[in-house]
Simulated assay, not measured.
Amino acid sequence: MHFERLAIADVLLITPKRFGDARGYFMETFRQNLFTEYAGDHDFVQDNQSFSVERGVVRGLHYQVEPRTQGKLVRCNAGRILDVAVDIRAGSPSFGQHVTAELSEANGRLLWIPPGFAHGFCTLTDNTVVSYKVTDYYSPEHDRGLLWNDPDLAIAWPIGTGEETISEKDRKQPRFADLEACFPVFGDAAHGAPA
């Protein structure tokens, strides 16, 4: 299993090792001891899965505020996605910046997005299945979001405006300029950021 730090070092791209033969392949998609070594000590409490019928489905950008912040370990089980993590930790040197990774059934990669990031993805194929482990339970009263196509974030989505399939809730998310200070201290271990 290979762990790669992206341009925002707290976000990890994980590539499992595949062992294949005439039957197909086997791979470990999660190994607690290695994950802890690279990402720190996080307990996963819930697994989620989404199915998107068409290419161009956008989900996000989502996050939860204190005290119910979530880290997410994201994997694409069928199809392909462009996965996005936006740093919303006030005081972080990468505050307001984002990283992306293509996750697919073919490449088997996972993306670790720690607490303090807004997360979203866009499907690149029809019939896409995405699963992710989270470090806290879904909490409607702590659920927040950012506008997926906010020009201030400058995310290079693989679709044009008007080509997306997106929920009404996500169409009405606030802009980054209106972000509430929900992760106010970068470097505070309670927020999942490095001390």
Rank of each mutant, 00 (worst) to 15 (best):
Q46F: 09
P16G: 07
L111R: 04
G60V: 10
A22W: 04
N149C: 08
A156V: 14
T29F: 13
W112N: 05
R5M: 02
A9C: 00
N33P: 12
Q46A: 08
L124R: 09
N107W: 08
G56M: 10
F51Y: 14
A9R: 15
C122N: 01
L34C: 01
F176T: 04
D126P: 08
T123L: 11
H2G: 12
W112K: 07
L103R: 03
V134Q: 11
M1C: 03
P151S: 05
A118Y: 07
A78L: 14
K72M: 06
C76A: 11
R23D: 03
D150T: 07
K72Q: 11
V53E: 13
P93M: 03
K17L: 13
F186H: 14
T29Y: 12
P67H: 13
I81N: 03
L179P: 06
C76H: 03
I88W: 00
Y137W: 14
H119E: 06
N48R: 07
K169C: 02
G40I: 12
N77R: 14
E180Y: 00
H191I: 05
A154T: 06
P114V: 10
G108R: 07
Q97R: 15
D188G: 02
A156P: 14
T15P: 00
E180Q: 15
F51N: 01
V65R: 15
H42C: 06
A78D: 06
P114Q: 10
R59H: 05
S167E: 07
